[in-house]
């Protein structure tokens, strides 16, 4: 038995935002893999819940007329991995989802929930950040869109006002077109573990595949929220494909990051992992893009 005082089950997106307006202190629950754990820990004792679990319209991955990928926030990790649309245009998102928790967790955890928690270690979050995701947020007063970079406010804090529901994660066409990504999760165990460092890299190469036309790199756990390494990106853009670029990325990323010491790993160790995952991730992404070393 869970310790909540009421459960409102939304029947549509419109109904959900109305329920959120009518019950401003209620907690929204999607897949519940954070909310129900907190509840077991006694942190949400007596709260009211609004469930969007049955809103299948938020579980789809489709393409907008402008070519943007529209990912329903209720898309589970395993559905992201198995989505033909994502496999075709952005396989790295499903691959990063496939590193979270274990198989049963991947059936229930959602891509929307994972960013709404504002947690830096979330495995799919760095990939969404690395692809400049745009978030569509709906409330009774309408829809607003904002960049995922502005969404993260601090550890556990995101730009969601009371009554606001994340209704889509949009990946702009220019982010995924001709772009090849790679995700590396470094953790102490092979499964059921939180990332010590998560690194998501993607590249667009020149048509002859000899030059890095555009490189993007984002980290989880390198700072308080998932973050891009902009200095490193600027340094790598335009560099020829080759070992020099790989060596450079390992150095450049350290100018951007600010990892902390925790019981999981010291800041020094995280820095080493940050360099190493950058080198390996960039190399793998370039190889996927058809670049040769």
């Amino acid at each position: 038995m869970y310790d909540f005082s009421a459960l409102y089950e939304a029947t549509s997106v419109q109904n959900a935002v109305e329920l959120m307006q009518a019950h401003p202190s209620a907690v929204l629950i999607a897949g519940g893999s954070d909310v129900l754990i907190k509840m077991r820990e006694g942190k949400l004792a007596g709260a009211e819940l609004i469930s969007i679990y049955k809103l299948d319209e938020l579980r789809e991955v489709t393409m907008d007329p402008d070519g943007a990928l529209r990912i329903g926030p209720m898309t589970s990790f395993s559905h992201a991995t198995n989505s033909p649309m994502l496999q075709k245009y952005m396989p790295v998102l499903g691959e990063s989802a496939d590193t979270a928790g274990g198989p049963q967790l991947r059936s229930i955890g959602t891509l929307g929930g994972t960013i709404c928690t504002g947690v830096t270690s979330a495995d799919t979050a760095s990939t969404q950040v690395a692809y400049d995701a745009v978030l569509e947020i709906t409330s009774v007063s309408g829809i607003r869109k904002l960049s995922i970079h502005d969404f993260y406010k601090g550890p556990g804090k995101v730009d969601l006002q009371p009554g606001e529901l994340l209704t889509a994660i949009l990946i702009p066409k220019e982010s995924y077109e001709n772009c090849f990504g790679y995700y590396i999760k470094y953790a102490m165990r092979n499964a059921m573990d939180i990332a010590t460092i998560g690194c998501s890299v993607n590249v667009v190469l020149s048509p002859d595949r000899k030059t890095i036309r555009r490189m993007r790199i984002a980290y989880g756990v390198a700072g308080p929220v998932p973050m891009r390494a902009r200095t490193a990106e600027a340094a790598l853009n335009g560099m020829p494909v080759g070992e020099a670029a790989i060596a450079a990325i390992g150095e450049e990323v350290l100018k951007d990051v600010n990892p902390r010491t925790s019981w999981r790993a010291s800041a020094e160790f995280r820095k080493q992992i940050i360099s190493e995952t950058a080198r390996r991730g960039l190399k793998a992404a370039i190889e996927r893009a058809g670049g040769v070393f």
Binding site: L7, L36, Q104
Partner: peptide
Amino acid sequence: EVGECGACNVIIDGECYNSCIYLAVW
């Protein structure tokens, strides 16, 4: 009862779920 151990695992519509972190009404 917090989704870590898999002792409560069941198959729902062909997928495996830990039933301890799944609301019965779902």
